[in-house]
Design a protein around this nucleic acid. Structure first.
Length: 678
RNA sequence: UGACCGAUGGUGUAACUGGCAACACGUCUGAUUUUGGUUCAGAAGAGUCUAGGUUCGAGCCCUAGUCGGUCAACCA
């Protein structure tokens, strides 16, 4: 019996291999190392879920370590936000660490490096240092201070630390290799002078370690076994290892860095710098604007921790560049909310509905299921009366066959209430519908058990009772960018693709009164519309709801014959195909040829012949060498050759040889086609 | 014109030391449904960037290309 084994990613493969090679499981340890200079986004969630997920899987500790080595950019506000986000996602860190906790140790090690001649103080300008660095294709040159006496470097470094020099005046550099093909090895800077207030160490330090120096050594201090980071740090690995070599005690664990691809999401950007720009330019209101791909933005939008973790899980971890479709994220939140959200009714674009045979002044209390997916979720009360609001889109005077909603002369059910029939409309001078008049079947009340209540009608509408309804603001969101990968255009700024209609505010929506008790923690499904949650902007009596995501809507998809998403998506593909050369088409079709038969085979052969009209002999000839086993391609080439011969191509020896080879082949189709060309 | 990564349906990932290319999203049918939701049943869609090679057998191995990414901050 085959066990259905859950597939593991390449990082887990590495860990499994280490374990298999004798690495003790109890020494596994991970870390999530954010720099507190911005808010976490859905891309970070991939890293968080990877590291903490590994911790859960192997029962290993995971540290939260703030990489706070640059006081100019980092703030306590970000530390707090990051901790909040990770905790919200449901992860627990073993230790809350800071690179700044290790400043003294790092400094001491740096002094040791100087003492053994592996570091020196340089006093050139950053421009000079940069120009000496060379380029990826040409080696660098040594700094004139590279061989400064050890004692002098020691003295200068101490004075740097003591604040005797202005920022930018001196740096401490590692003495590695100025001609290394790896730019990071060309005497990288270990320390620079910065006079700025640090969020934790205040004014204690005037020198701050660079990333490479701080990061690997922090991993070592914390005895992190697997230090996982994104691909752009791949080139840093050599330096990471070199630094470790200088201080590593073989009795202790030696961390190892491995890299994975960062996660991108379609129709948004995923870099802190760009997200910050959106905030600063007021394109969005804040870091937690519900349109932002930040964890805080998604939270405010109504996403749940479960949905984000599920997304990270489904999206996976690998090493190639990627743009994950937002539809996967949307699937994850719908899946979660479908199981958990309380069903309520709300009308966003109202039109008045009058039930003419329902007694004026009367009202009654009906019961609405809280969640049909959850049998024990109970019901809540919803008032019903003679005058209701329904969605304007839910009525058409003459709906036609495929319109399942209310129209004149037709019956629909009002959700959890009665079956009604459209009778007439009242319009204003402009022809806009003011009221819809209908009659109801008093015996059809939902749940009454009568035959009338169990009648089948085409559609069911949501509604709210006008005299009982409460008003609220509802904010609907669309993708922030109109382009699938807004920051992938070399010639254009991502800002050019901002969607001007990403926010739609409905000032007056009508909700059933049950929603007056909504809290920020509640998740609702506005029936037939989508999932909604309360926004923190809400005040007493002034509720504001955010639309998290709409329900799947196959009807809208059918009726709007221009599904924008798919069209924009398929366009480039079509263009590419349109531009693809005829020869490539032939090869492509040819590959499958041997798997086809009957009509499909005929069609394939026909289209190969069509494409052959656009192929020159010069293009085709190289394919005569196609390996014998690639029969499909050879058949395709044979077919194309046939077309060229018909057009007057000479039968050279090369051609004859190819045909003869075809005649001798074991494949029937190839033989037949070859014989036709004798 | 260097070094290092990467390339599998529209998208994201699988395929343990070579053995019928799998899963999810998305798309399309049909059934069920007091949400045009959910659920259920099914379908289409790639022969694994190209060309050679090794092998009984290659997405996995070898060779040569092509395309994409990363690397020259006193950022991380």
């Amino acid at each position: 019996m085959k066990e259905l084994q859950e597939s593991i990613n390449f990082i887990e493969h590495i860990i499994e291999e280490d374990l298999a090679n004798g690495f003790p499981k109890e020494k596994l340890r991970f870390r999530f190392p954010p720099e507190p200079n911005g808010y976490l986004h859905i891309g970070h969630a991939a890293s968080i879920c990877l590291n903490f997920g590994l911790g859960e899987k192997y029962n290993a500790p995971v540290n939260l370590r703030f990489d706070d080595t640059n006081p100019a950019k980092e703030e306590q506000e970000y530390v707090d936000a990051i901790k909040n986000d990770i905790a919200w996602l449901g992860f627990k860190w073993a230790n809350e660490c800071y690179a700044s906790d290790y400043f003294q140790q790092l400094y001491d090690w740096a002094v040791d490096l100087i003492k053994v001649g592996k570091a020196y103080v340089d006093q050139q300008s950053s421009e000079e240092i940069a120009s000496q660095k060379g380029t990826p294709t040409s080696p660098g040159t040594d700094s004139p201070f590279r061989n400064r006496p050890i004692g002098e470097s020691l003295d200068l470094f101490e004075r740097m630390k003591n604040g005797e020099f202005p920022a930018g005046s001196y740096v401490l550099r590692a003495k590695v290799d100025m001609s290394s093909p790896n730019m990071h090895m060309r005497d990288p800077i270990l320390y620079r002078v910065i006079h700025a207030h640090h969020h934790r160490t205040g004014g204690d330090w005037c020198v701050y370690p660079m990333y490479d120096w701080a990061h690997g050594e922090s991993d070592y201090i914390e005895q992190v076994s697997h230090s996982l980071c994104t691909l752009e740090f791949k080139a840093h690995r050599e330096l990471y290892d070199w630094y470790l070599d200088q201080i590593w005690d073989p009795k202790l664990l030696r961390p190892k860095q491995r890299e994975f691809a960062r996660r991108n999401l379609s129709y948004t950007v995923m870099s802190k710098r760009k997200l910050l720009e959106l905030v600063q330019k007021n394109i969005v209101a804040s870091w937690d604007d519900p349109r932002m791909p930040t964890i805080s933005g998604l939270r405010r939008r109504g996403y749940t921790p479960t949905s984000i973790r599920k997304f990270s899980d489904l999206a996976g971890i690998a090493k190639r560049d990627n743009v994950t479709d937002v539809s996967l994220l949307e699937f994850c939140i719908r899946e979660d909310l479908n199981k958990t959200a309380t069903r309520v009714m709300a009308v966003l674009n109202p039109v008045k509905l009058v039930i003419t045979n329902y007694p004026e002044g009367q009202s009654e209390t009906l019961h609405l299921e809280n969640n049909p997916e959850e049998p024990n979720s109970g019901t809540h009360e919803v008032p019903f009366s003679r005058e209701l609001y329904i969605e304007r889109e839910d009525f058409k005077e003459d709906g036609g066959k495929n319109f399942f909603r209310l129209s004149l002369g037709n019956e629909v059910r009002l959700k959890s209430a009665y079956i009604i029939k459209g009778e007439s409309v009242v319009k204003d001078d402009a022809g806009k519908i003011q009221e819809i008049h209908c009659t109801y079947d008093p015996d059809s009340r939902s749940g009454s058990g009568t035959a009338a209540s169990e009648r089948k009608v085409k559609g069911t509408l949501h509604w709210v009772s006008i005299p009982h309804a409460i008003k609220a603001e509802v904010r609907e969101y669309d993708r922030l960018f109109l382009d699938e990968a807004p920051d992938a255009h070399e010639d254009k700024s991502f800002l050019e693709f901002v969607n001007p209609d990403s926010l739609n505010v409905i000032k007056e929506a009508y909700l059933e009164p049950y929603l007056s008790h909504a809290t920020l923690a509640d998740k609702f499904q506005f029936q037939r519309l989508g999932y909604f949650t309360l926004d923190p902007d809400s005040k007493d009596g002034q509720l504001v709801f955010n639309k998290t995501v709409g329900l799947r809507d196959t009807w809208a998809k059918q009726s709007t014959k221009t599904p924008t998403q798919n069209q924009t998506k398929s366009k480039p593909t079509n263009q590419q195909q349109g531009q693809r050369k005829a020869l490539n088409e032939i090869q492509q079709i040819g590959k499958k040829l041997t798997n086809l038969s009957g009509d499909k085979l005929e069609t394939a052969i026909k289209s190969i012949k069509e494409f052959s009209q656009e192929v020159t002999y010069e293009e085709l000839e190289p394919l005569f060498n196609t390996a014998a086993k690639k029969v499909g391609t050879r058949i395709a080439v044979m077919l194309a050759l046939g077309v060229l011969l018909e057009k007057g191509q000479d039968k050279t020896q090369v051609v004859i040889d190819f045909i003869e080879a075809g005649k001798a082949d074991g494949n029937d189709i190839l033989r037949t086609e070859a014989e036709k060309l004798i």
